[in-house]
Write a protein that binds this DNA or RNA. Structure first.
Length: 580
RNA sequence: GCACCCAUAGCUCAGCUGGAUAGAGCGUUGCCCUCCGAAGGCAAAGGUCGCACGUUCGAAUCGUGCUGGGUGCGCCA
């Protein structure tokens, strides 16, 4: 249940009644009427802009509309007060029973509280990570993995049918480089000196792959020419890399539903079919691209290529799908892959890319737009860089890879839960500092700790209550009399809890999981504030002498804990019950 | 040259399909606490929301044009 939606429905009903009795003219459009929490709590619990939005079409002064509306709304038992303010806002105060109802919903709903049918079961595909299978995952991949996974959780919570997907770039030249690099390690496993030439992957993670190649193939490949072993070694090494990547993802708590292979698109006619489909739409032609203005590539010369008329779907220039030698560009299999996703029946596609792929967004959207006849929206989230810090300076070293810090390094140093939370403390398109010292600090400065601590305090209350012999199971708490919960600080806590279902819908609509992390921080902040007031005002403590009063206050605390657990669940972070 | 992203308090950042006096944390200043309802609390100061026009009853939010920073720009993915 979403309280804001309920109250909005109430407002719309009241407006309809005003129309029926002739106070308002017929035929008004209520689409822009909104009900929101006021920025300033002094303005009440809910505010609607109805009077201002309707003033012009109704030909009436906003305050007149607002006053008529206020009178109607007051008839509902949920509305305890309705005042016209400012240019025509209608501020409503809600009856305490409304907030008590929210708390019961949270206690009954548990971690499902705030879930929604906004997505209406529509199928959405979230493609993320899609790291090249040439080595272990590094820091650059971590943020994309976390954002993608949390977004998938969020959308599932909001009623979408979600598929998490990884696109394996195993069709290009880089997997040949991997094969050659692994072959050198294979020679090394036989006691020969590896020649890690310029351009090969030097990482030591390939040493065990060389050993495994030796176990699998013995000495049979040693004196063979490259043509004889390349395909075998490539497949072997790629499989090993993908296993490593799956393990890395698992360490971060990420599990994919589908792994799609670029290589598997070749030789199946899928690329040809996708391009032919575009050709049938008149969107493929032979032509020559203009050179980019300004800095001209040194070896530029005009070439005739097979081009996709992406400009017909919003791109700036048309894009090549075939090289001059007739082979496909990297864009062609990507088109085929996205066509594949469209044909699998997804209603919506989401790609999570690194920010350095920003230039790729328009052409990809153009391709999906063309291939789905505009039916399937593609949203592309660009993930900005993560800068690692330790001891006040940039952190660069890696035990395994030599050149880059791996996902494993980060998870081992900070833990998966901390890593995931911190990665969501920034909007996806701004850079993020990840300071190993700060993220592990146990203080208010650390948002992970702060949120976890709030939930730990809730659990501490529950423990103590049980020790005192109180019934505090959720089902029991949901049934207790909450009428005593009427202190402004307690109502404020409930108000924050009531925002959760609305926040979920906003975050899901915008595909922005970071909003959940920020909300949890605010929720925790509200709870710690209430807790601290208990130090001065004994009546605000959660544990009281009177069992019934205690139970009511514990219901409030537990409802907060329920939302924290639900939110952390979306972020993929394990709630802790006790700080140590 | 073009496209995309970013620009909000001294610092790091939020800001709801356009809403009221623009928020949080850190830092600064003042007061309080030394309590396991531990891993601090309360309060204050601090802003031309990069700039300029425009749309609107109303703009940090939308549009146009600029400034500054980042990313990218045909046979690499």
């Amino acid at each position: 249940m979403n309280l804001f939606a309920d109250i909005r429905a109430l407002v719309i009903d009241a407006l309809g009644a005003l129309q029926a009795e002739g106070t308002l003219p017929a035929g008004l459009d209520f689409a822009n009427v909104s009900v929101e929490p006021p920025r300033d709590a002094a303005h009440g619990d809910m505010a609607t802009n109805a009077a201002m939005v309707l003033a012009k079409p109704a030909g009436m002064p906003p305050r007149a509309i607002a006053e008529a509306l206020a009178a109607k709304l007051m008839a509902d038992p949920r509305v305890a007060g309705a005042d016209v303010a400012g240019p025509g806002f209608l501020n409503m105060a809600l009856a305490p029973a409304v907030w008590h109802g929210i708390l019961r919903s949270a206690l009954i709903g548990g971690r499902a509280f705030g879930s929604s049918d906004l997505g209406a079961g529509q199928k959405v595909n979230v493609e993320f990570v899609s790291a090249n299978p040439t080595g272990p995952m590094h820091v650059g991949h971590v943020r994309g993995a976390v954002v993608g996974d949390a977004l998938a959780n969020l959308l599932a919570f909001a009623g979408w049918d979600v598929t998490r997907e990884y696109y394996i770039n195993d069709g290009g030249a880089q997997v040949d480089v991997l094969a050659r690099s692994a072959f050198e390690r294979y020679r090394q496993a036989h006691g020969l000196d590896p020649e890690i030439r310029e351009g090969l992957y030097p990482g030591e993670y390939l040493v065990p792959v060389g050993e495994a190649l030796k176990d699998a193939f013995g000495a049979s490949l040693l004196d063979q020419p490259e043509e004889a072993w390349l395909a075998k070694v490539r497949e072997f090494a790629t499989d090993r890399m993908m296993q490593m990547i799956r393990d890395d993802l698992a360490a971060l708590g990420v599990r994919m539903d589908v792994y799609s292979s670029e290589k598997a698109l070749y030789g199946t006619g899928q690329i040809e079919a996708a391009i032919d489909t575009l050709r049938g739409m008149g969107l493929i032609y032979e032509g020559t691209l203009e050179p980019p203005k300004g800095q001209l590539p040194e070896d530029w010369e005009p070439r005739v290529q097979t081009l996709f008329r992406s400009t017909a779907h919003g791109d700036d220039v048309d894009r090549p799908v075939q090289k001059s030698d007739g082979s496909w560009t990297y864009f062609a299999p990507d088109i085929a892959y996205h066509y594949n996703k469209v044909k699998r029946g997804f209603d919506q596609l989401i790609d999570i890319f690194g920010a350095d792929h920003g230039g790729y967004v328009k052409r990809m959207k153009a391709a999906v737009s063309a291939l789905s006849n505009g039916r399937v929206p593609l949203d592309i989230k660009l993930i900005q860089l993560v800068k690692l810090w330790k001891n006040g300076e940039p952190f660069k070293m890696s035990k395994r890879a030599g050149t880059f810090v791996t996902l494993r390094d980060v998870v081992e140093m900070a833990g998966a839960d901390v890593t995931r939370f911190i990665m969501l403390t920034r909007k996806n398109d701004v850079a993020l500092d990840f300071d190993f010292d700060k993220v592990l600090e146990q203080s208010k400065d650390n948002p992970v700790f702060y949120v976890q601590y709030a939930n730990a305090r809730v659990n501490s209350i529950l423990r103590k209550a049980r020790e005192a012999g109180l019934e505090v199971d959720d089902a029991v708490l949901a049934g207790v009399d909450l009428a005593g919960l009427n202190h402004p600080a307690e109502i404020a806590m409930a108000r924050k809890i009531a925002e959760w279902p609305r926040l979920v819908e906003i975050a899901a609509r915008t595909n922005e999981p970071h909003r959940v992390a920020f909300y949890l921080y605010e929720l925790a902040s509200e709870f710690h504030g209430l807790w601290n007031r208990g130090n001065d005002e004994a009546s605000l403590r959660f544990l009281q002498d009177d069992p019934a009063t205690s139970q009511a206050k514990i219901a409030l605390a537990r409802a907060t804990g329920v939302v924290i657990c639900a939110g952390l669940g979306i972020l993929g972070v394990t709630p802790v019950e006790e700080m140590r």
